[in-house]
Design a protein around this nucleic acid. Structure first.
Length: 163
DNA sequence: CCCTGATTCGC
DNA sequence: GCGAATCAGG
């Protein structure tokens, strides 16, 4: 993997936007965090446009996608498992560089992978997701009796479906 | 434990 | 020029 012009340009852009070295490395693929830091220094772009304090949005976007669900949030998901699977299978239309203000931010795929992306379809004015993904993301609160019922479920058997 | 950037130095 | 290893932390 060499630093050709395209990869260098992407590095420059992501870094100046405030993405951390390890995040840039994962987006590019084939390079380590150290490699990115080394390159950043050689390019002389250690001072970034986006100050540390304002970086959280970018960070959250890149991390996205839960690793494993706990029983607490898994249980309600089960009830609409089929629809969540459908929703999850919608192909990404944007990567981190292509996200616009109006883009649906539903993460798709493994954030560590090259083909990780975001739904990118037109989102609702106030929310973070398009209509389709908003239906997958939000649900009514469960009743106290339902919560009790989930709590009695063995976690292992539920987590197998979402891990 | 997860993570951050900075520096050094053999390659 | 490159980046693993290390340092110094959060």
């Amino acid at each position: 993997m060499d630093w050709n012009e395209e990869r260098t340009a992407t590095l420059r852009k992501l870094w100046l936007e405030g993405m951390s070295a390890s995040q840039v490395a994962r987006q590019l693929g084939g390079v380590s965090r150290s490699a990115v830091i080394g390159k950043v220094h050689r390019l002389g772009i250690t001072v970034r446009e986006v100050p540390t304090r304002q970086r959280s949005a970018v960070r959250t976007a890149v991390r996205a996608q839960p690793r494993t669900r706990t029983i607490r949030d898994t249980a309600p998901v089960q009830r609409s498992a089929l629809r969540l699977v459908e929703v999850a299978e919608m192909a990404p239309t944007a990567n981190i560089l292509g996200l616009e203000i109006h883009s649906c931010r539903w993460p798709i795929g493994n954030p560590d992978s090259h083909d990780f992306g975001f739904c990118g379809r037109e989102k609702t004015a106030r929310g973070s997701y398009c209509d389709e993904h908003a239906r997958g993301a939000f649900r009514k609160l469960a009743s106290p009796s339902e919560v009790k019922a989930w709590a009695r479920q063995p976690a292992a058997h539920i987590e197998r479906h979402t891990a």
